[in-house]
């Protein structure tokens, strides 16, 4: 259990940031899995009242506050229609409905959870991550960057473009984290992301480069799928072996590419 002496719900992100940087404090995201950790802090900061649960459609973008729960991808009329329901479909099978009602966008992205399906999906969309102090990152840069100091994820912005998308995952029980997940988008370029490796999702740059300027056909897709499974590093964990992930990755990438062909 996480133990603390004070629970503060700051009214602004600025207040939250000041608390975070001046005290032995942590941001409590949605609250999921907190019972699993075992540490003591002085202050728990809950951003629930910090006006970060907005969903705004601005021109060709949607900005989503970090305290928006991921159930909004199912329920909010703007988010559920984004990319023809792509994010709705992805989030709808994340854990349970109850959990999705507390898991937040910020609470998923900021810790860079390897098991996240949503991160993999966002990686193939034009997504930007806004941190209160460190500023704007593309989601792929954000995942690669080690922040030098504590920060607060304020919002993400997803641009609406004309992309075909596909999301694939493998689980044994449907009610589980994915053993491996794959997201693909196709506009002018093809983007391929692999997550649950079990480390955090990453893009398959080499394969994306290989596909640059090529028309997708079954032959090329097969080759690309193989290439992704060679390119992406995998590891063992409690759910599956490295070897299994590698094999399944090839199958899932193939399926995803066939879907966007």
């Amino acid at each position: 259990m996480i133990k603390f002496k004070e629970y503060i719900k700051p009214k602004t992100i600025e207040d939250a940031y000041n608390l975070l940087t001046t005290k032995n404090a942590e941001i409590i995201g949605g609250g999921a899995f907190l019972r699993l950790s075992n540490r003591k802090i002085d202050v728990a900061i809950d951003l629930i009242d910090a006006n970060l649960n907005f969903i705004n459609e601005i021109n060709d973008s949607v900005e989503i506050g970090s305290m928006v729960t991921i159930s909004e991808f199912e329920e909010n009329p703007v988010l559920s229609k984004l990319y023809n329901g792509f994010l709705k479909n992805v989030s709808e099978t994340v854990l349970s409905f109850q959990m999705r009602n507390i898991i937040t966008v910020g609470g998923t992205l900021y810790p860079k959870y390897g098991f996240s399906d949503l991160i993999t999906a966002l990686l193939v969309l034009p997504t930007e991550v806004y941190l209160y102090k460190s500023g704007k990152f593309s989601v792929e840069d954000f995942l690669k960057t080690r922040l030098e100091h504590k920060d607060i994820l304020a919002k993400i912005v997803i641009k609406k473009e004309n992309l075909k998308t596909s999301f694939q995952y493998i689980r044994n029980s449907e009610y589980d984290f994915s053993i491996l997940n794959v997201a693909v988008s196709k506009g002018n370029e093809v983007k391929i992301a692999v997550g649950g490796r079990p480390a955090v999702a990453q893009l398959a740059y080499k394969t994306m480069q290989f596909l640059h300027g090529k028309d997708l056909n079954e032959e090329i897709i097969k080759e690309a799928a193989k290439m992704v499974s060679e390119e992406i590093p995998f590891a063992d964990d409690i759910k599956a072996s490295k070897e299994y992930r590698k094999k399944v990755c090839e199958a899932l990438v193939k399926r995803a590419l066939l879907e966007v062909m």
């Binding site: 699993l36 044994n172 029980s173 449907e174 009610y175 409690i238 759910k239």
Partner: peptide, 12 residues
């Protein structure tokens, strides 16, 4: 725990 030990869900 029930994250690692998976009993069947209603979809399984």
């Amino acid at each position: 725990n029930l994250m690692h030990y998976k009993i069947p869900s209603r979809l399984d």
